[in-house]
């Protein structure tokens, strides 16, 4: 007779102490970020989709279309085309196509690039109703940004 009664009282007490925990949380401030109104700062090493780096000296892309990134990509989502401009010592990039629908943001391309010509962007609001928007030409983007 004693043991079941103790179980009942003990069980009831455990319920009350659980409720004490939640009511304590009730009066604490909320911990969430109210996304559309406020958003977080992405950390410095954030791995977004890649973008081409501009050479501060020339204002052109650093990339010279060596295609190492193309080879290193596990998902074949990078296509690089380059051409030798007249008077230039080496090739420069003319097309840098990133098929973001296949990209898994692994960062192999950035690691493979020896001349630091690509980097991660901080963009994370990547949503669209049109699939074609995710096949992006990073070279054109760079050019457009320059203007």
């Amino acid at each position: 007779m004693k043991q079941p009664l103790r179980d009942i009282v003990g069980g009831f007490y455990s319920l009350l102490s659980g409720m004490r925990v939640t009511i304590a949380q009730f009066f604490k401030p909320s911990v969430t970020v109210h996304y559309p109104h406020e958003s977080l700062q992405m950390p410095a090493r954030f791995r977004g989709h890649i973008e081409l780096v501009r050479d501060p000296a020339t204002g052109k892309a650093v990339c010279f279309a060596c295609k190492v990134c193309e080879k290193s990509c596990p998902s074949d989502c990078i296509t690089v085309e380059g051409a030798k401009l007249e008077g230039a010592k080496r090739k420069s990039v003319t097309q840098f196509r990133l098929d973001f629908t296949k990209c898994s943001l692994c960062g192999s391309c950035v690691e493979a690039c020896k001349s630091n010509a690509i980097r991660f962007s901080r963009q994370y609001n990547l949503a669209s109703t049109n699939k074609d928007e995710f096949v992006m030409d990073l070279f054109k983007r760079l050019e457009a940004e320059g203007q």
Partner: peptide
């Protein structure tokens, strides 16, 4: 529920 779970 929001308050109990620390959200608005």
């Amino acid at each position: 529920a929001g308050r109990f779970q620390r959200r608005p």
